[in-house]
Amino acid sequence: MTFRYLPDVALADVAFEAEAGSLGELFESCALALTDIMVDPATLKPAVARDISLESDDADRLLYDFLTELIIAKDVDSLLFREYSIETAPDGRSLRATARGEPIDRERHSLRNDVKAVTMHMFGIRHEGGKWMATVVLDI
């Protein structure tokens, strides 16, 4: 489970590629990348838990909706998360997740960028050589 930034893609925004051994772990990697863009995760405590259940047409759109849900939580409830446990259905069309984090504290949290949205530029999940991979470009 890991992610790496793609510094030469979409200069004004932030692109990353995530890789994992299972679809659920891939979603977790993508969520951790999203967190890392918004805040130094080491400054966050897993004090609050948020359960998320989603259904979608396919795994791609499920990932899009999941990341969008986390961005909405940042704006509506001022919540940022640092830990995720995610179970995806075998068909990749639904998930149940618990995200743990805490409300934004400007004194204690080392905040970074306010992510606006998940774009569909280069967006997608691939299953290659037994690994799950995703490319995501976030609008900053």
């Binding site: 899009y64 909706d65 961005i71 949205a117 998940v118 569909m120 530029h121 280069m122 967006f123 609008d139």
Partner: peptide, 25 residues
């Protein structure tokens, strides 16, 4: 940002109905 996200999803699904193909999703 949310209006953009909402309608990107709508249009991503609607293009097939209108027979539109694009070079970037």
């Amino acid at each position: 940002h949310q209006i953009g996200s909402d309608y990107l999803r709508v249009f991503d699904g609607a293009m097939k109905r209108y027979g539109i193909q694009v070079k970037d999703r």
